[in-house]
Amino acid sequence: MPNLKDLKVRIDSVKSTRKITSAMKMVAAAKLRRAQEQAEASRPYAQRMDRMLGSLAAAAAGQAGAPKLLAGSGSDQTHLILVATADRGLCGGFNSSIVREARNLARELLEQGKTVKFFCIGRKGRDQLRREFGERIIDTIEDIARPSLSFDKAADIGTRVVAMFEAGEFDVCTMFYAEFRSAISQIVTPQQLIPFAPPESENGEEEPEALNGAVYEYEPGEEEILTALLPTNLSVQIFKALLENAASEHGARMTAMDNATRNAGDMINNLTLIYNRTRQAAITGELIEIISAKEAM
């Protein structure tokens, strides 16, 4: 028979766990709102950048002198995988699902005899990848979202990636992050950063204004603009991914903590039931003892 005191202790401990999880849920909800706002605010820039780049890339594609960031280095032997995860756990399957996708790609590439390198943004991704790909992780960036996520930080990563590419350290760069759909649904998305792959236009969105067949004039020249635009675009894409990731992380944490709070509630109910039954049984037992003692006299 469970001890009454033990039960009491357990109920109290589950209660304090529930307090923590519900507080974490509230914090995550507040942070989610902010992250979502930030993600939405950054969208216009990315959209316009895409539009500009799309028209430029179409014009420059196939030309002999196209910049390497657009055309690639002519090989696909070495792959760099950028894994954007959170720095903290307790957010359900968020980190694991990103890492799982990245790992699958890495295994596939390794089977084909390619070289794979990892660049982790976020501590959790590194922790999970270290076991299998320890020596392939070239660097990890931690705490990028503290105190706040800014474009400068994304630009720093972008510059480093470009510098590595130009030094010939890799040929293809793919980034994994979780795209934010809603608080309960985040979709792990691989995105090829280098060479530049124009995003497939979603749901067949038409250009709002026709240029009447007019083509853009480029000032100074197409190539100069492209060489300036491509690295910036890389930073923008990374920034966008990080913002999406931040929103997804808080969404995932909110859901996870909501579940945890609910589970804790269920557990408390069950334990309280057992506690009351046990107490009742003890009382009944004592009564029987008293009555039978009296009758015996």
């Binding site: 430029l56 240029l211 004039e217 000032e219």
Partner: peptide, 19 residues
């Protein structure tokens, strides 16, 4: 302020992209 000099944009300007 374009890279190759300032330019003014009025309505019906020819399409262009500049740094």
């Amino acid at each position: 302020p374009g890279d190759e000099g300032d330019f003014g944009v009025l309505v019906r300007h020819a399409p262009m992209i500049s740094t």
